[in-house]
Amino acid sequence: MFSNEQTLQIAKLARLRLSDEEVELYGNQLGSILGYVEKLQELDTENVPELQHAAQLQNVFRDDVVNQCSEESRKRALDNFSNREGDLLKVQAVFENRTE
């Protein structure tokens, strides 16, 4: 079980705003799920490699040329923007203005 502080810290990592009830609920639920997955620690995996690449492929390359998507797809992608100016995605400032 997580303390409310820990749960809020994880929510911050996950970029989620939670209500007070959610903090309480998820703290308990995450605790019980982590309690279950704890059983992996019983296994000795000292010399076992991690299974990293599901497709067991390496370095899938293609020629460095631009393959333009269709104008229709481009237009549809732009139409899905929440806020735009012309064809540009409009977002809030990423860096704060500093006056010093």
Binding site: T7, I10, L16, L30, L34, T45, P49, E50, L51
Partner: peptide, 30 residues
């Protein structure tokens, strides 16, 4: 979705990644 995103953010976070995520990848090999 919120539960799983939080769970995943935790198991990948600094200090826990080896004990959870990397351990699970080893078990996946087994």
């Amino acid at each position: 979705v919120k539960r799983r995103i939080m769970l995943g953010s935790y198991t990948l976070s600094a200090g826990y990644c080896d004990a959870y995520y990397k351990k699970a990848l080893k078990v996946r090999t087994l």
